[in-house]
């Protein structure tokens, strides 16, 4: 079974990986993003689609002929005030029209949750409900444990004396080897600690976000911007988004207008050169220092 290393994977890898390993399924996770994938993805979908979606389809192209099933969930909303990106609603239908490989799919919306989704997939693959329950229990324990670990690590980082910058960006951009990684490296080379916005306690950030924007109804954006209120010790903020991200275009703009510390807004698209980014990052670092 294949999982593309893009979008949802970064949110739920600690849940999905142990779950499927416990069920003795051969997992193929696509490698780090490379320019070939970007090329494949760009050819497949309209040019106006956001960079992260193009990469997702690039990963799917890589996986399509290598595995029997591909896991493509449709995550719509957790409740009415916690919706996800509009693009996420369309992923399954779009992929099923573009690829012939069998797709394992579950749906999360007002009536369905992650647990139900994973159970459905377990049954589809022919496992007994007892085994699935076992695997799920193991996976959820591991997931919670890893979140805790992340949090502890983060709070240690926040206490250090080095200069710190809070990175506000979707995890699928932050940890992507084409989008986020090179930029984070630039900061670390200059001896600046990056605080990741997704390593905070999600429940806390989710509710805190309403203080910054009372009507925000996107879950992932709420998780992100809530972290701003939890990190008053940082020296600056870095906004990183992929062009043209629908959520970030509005939310980041709103948040930036409410900040009183230096910030840098980086928008990456498929032909951004690192040299240009480098100059901007360096001048930003000068401002912080």
């Amino acid at each position: 079974m294949g999982i593309p290393k893009a979008l949802h994977y970064y949110y739920y890898k600690e849940l999905w990986e142990p779950f499927f390993k416990k069920l003795d399924i051969d997992l193929i996770i696509s490698p780090d993003t490379n320019p070939v994938m970007l090329d494949n993805g760009t050819k497949l979908v309209p040019d106006e689609m956001c960079l992260s979606m193009k990469l997702y389809f690039g990963h799917l192209v890589y996986l399509a002929d290598k595995c029997d099933y591909i896991l493509i969930p449709r995550i719509d909303r957790f409740d009415n005030d916690n919706q996800t990106c509009t693009n996420f609603l369309a992923i399954y239908d779009l992929a099923s029209k573009l690829f012939d490989t069998k797709i394992l799919n579950f749906n999360i919306d007002n009536d369905n949750n992650m647990r139900g989704g994973l159970f459905k997939i377990g049954k589809e693959l022919g496992f007994s409900s007892k085994k699935v329950t076992q695997a799920y229990k193991y996976a959820i324990a591991y997931y919670k444990y890893s979140l805790k670990q992340k949090e502890i690590e983060q709070s240690n980082k926040l206490l250090s004396d080095r200069k710190k910058v809070l990175l506000i960006s979707h995890p699928y951009n932050t940890y992507d080897s084409l989008i986020g990684k090179p930029i984070i490296k630039l900061f670390e080379d200059n001896d600046i600690n990056i605080i990741y916005c997704d390593a905070f306690n999600i429940q806390k950030t989710n509710t805190l976000a309403l203080k910054l924007s009372p009507n925000l109804y996107w879950k992932y954006s709420r998780d992100q911007i809530g972290s701003i209120l939890l990190s008053d010790k940082v020296d600056g903020f870095l906004f990183l988004s992929s062009f043209p991200c629908g959520l970030d275009s509005l939310v980041n703009e709103l948040v930036m207008r409410k900040l009183n510390k230096p910030y840098l807004n980086l928008v990456v698209d498929d032909n951004t050169s690192l040299a240009g980014v480098e100059t901007r990052v360096e001048s930003f670092i000068d401002v912080i220092n």
């Binding site: 309209p46 990106c85 369309a90 043209p244 629908g246």
Partner: peptide, 16 residues
């Protein structure tokens, strides 16, 4: 309108 997210996703299917 340019950058309309839902419609962008619909375009390949409409084309098909």
């Amino acid at each position: 309108a340019s950058f309309c997210t839902p419609e962008i996703a619909a375009m390949p299917i409409i084309n098909q």
